[in-house]
Design a protein around this nucleic acid. Structure first.
Length: 217
DNA sequence: ACATTAAGTGATT
DNA sequence: AATCACTTAATGT
């Protein structure tokens, strides 16, 4: 399991830090669809994702969920970092998108490492940068893209993080994720089928001419 | 064979 | 783009 971790992080962290992580981190393997963090939860650990992916969602006052971004291998949770430096409650919900392996670091260590390890500082700051950009993109998508574009982007993003062009999902589930109705999805789906972008079967959407990025080993 | 769930469609707002 | 009401098709028991 350490080997797994090393392949993903050894080029980012210095040896001393890798050793310390190996010493204190708790390893967890989480199956698909598990809520790791709920809104309002106190955050006590910081995750480092080894493989798999996690959906990070926010919620508006009406209780509508909104997908903010994905965490993938090599990512960590910026929310947790923020929480350590002030307020202690999570504003987001984290749900595993597939079988995911991760390491949990007690948040107490975070601050220690900030002063101790330059590579950790770099990692934290670049995480912030990456997440900030993804959030801006999410806002952009909501504000300026019509439903058809949102749908296609949603499908592409999902295919990307799962590493496959075949998605096992229903129109109703997609509708829920995009905060719209099933009927609308079905109709837009028909449109993009005609455009030749996807094909569908029951419980399935296949992206055409979409090559998910190969995971390098 | 029957019930349940997913998806397609027309009409209306 | 949302909702309703209804149909058709696929799947489970």
């Amino acid at each position: 399991m350490l080997n797994n971790f090393k392949s993903q992080y050894s080029f980012i962290f210095e040896d001393a830090l890798l050793k310390e992580i190996n010493l204190i981190a708790e390893y967890r393997k989480v199956k698909k669809g598990v809520t790791l963090i709920e809104i309002g939860d106190p955050l006590t650990n910081m995750p480092l994702i080894m493989n798999g992916s996690i959906q990070i969602k926010g919620e508006d006052k009406k209780g509508n969920e909104i997908l903010l971004y994905y965490l993938e291998a090599g990512d960590s949770c910026t929310m947790t970092m923020t929480c350590c430096l002030g307020n202690k409650k999570s504003k987001i919900r984290a749900i595993t998108e597939q079988l995911t392996e991760l390491l949990l670091i007690p948040i107490g260590k975070m601050e220690d490492w900030l002063v101790k390890y330059p590579s950790w500082r770099t990692f934290v700051f670049s995480s912030y940068d990456a997440r900030m950009n993804e959030m801006l993109e999410a806002i952009d998508t909501l504000a300026f893209l019509n439903m058809e574009e949102r749908l296609y982007k949603y499908l592409r993003d999902k295919a990307m993080v799962l590493g496959t062009s075949t998605l096992s999902i229903t129109h109703a589930q997609i509708a829920h994720d995009l905060n719209t109705s099933r009927v609308v999805i079905s109709r837009l789906m028909k449109k993009i089928i005609i455009e030749g972008k996807v094909s569908t079967e029951r419980n399935k959407v296949v992206l055409i001419e979409f090559l998910p990025k190969k995971i390098s080993d």
